[in-house]
Amino acid sequence: MQLVEGEREEILACVKEVLGNNSKTRENLIPILQQVQKKLGYLPALAMEKIAEGVSVPAVDIYGLTTFYNQFRLNPPGKHQVKVCLGTACYMVGGDITLESFERRMEIKEGETSPDRRYSLDRVACVGCCTLAPVVVVDDQVEGKVTPTRVDGIMLALEENGESPGEQKSGTEEDGNNGEN
């Protein structure tokens, strides 16, 4: 993932601050990673490299750790975050098909972010409304009974006005400008 302008400095400052607040021991590695992720929203490769230097752990081990645990994400959250539920109920009624439809439409895989950072696609375990299965959460808005046709509808809505359907979010003044699709 390409860093956006000014992001490099932000990452370096953030890692420096977090490393300053923690003792740089191997045992503190996970808390350090969690704090950096909380601040940046994800763990860029640059941050992992700098943490590796600070804690004196090989960078490849940090990469191994962050790919082992589901709580860490290595791609930035997109402007529009789509979370597809693959809990038992959603999975049984074809949540995986819904996920595949999103993957095809967004041209990214689960857990990834589109290169323009417009969309990110994730899977979640259960949203808590299994009667609506298969469930998809689009920018905190719950969508029920999402068939592949509905996926097209959701994507169209996102592409057209940059808003998640049925929701008017504040602070979206630049949404219209970015909708190049």
């Binding site: 960078a59 490849v60 081990d61 990469y63 191994g64 790919t67």
Partner: peptide, 9 residues
């Protein structure tokens, strides 16, 4: 060299 490691699970 610390090049290789394991990822994912």
């Amino acid at each position: 060299a610390w090049i290789f490691g394991f990822a994912k699970r």
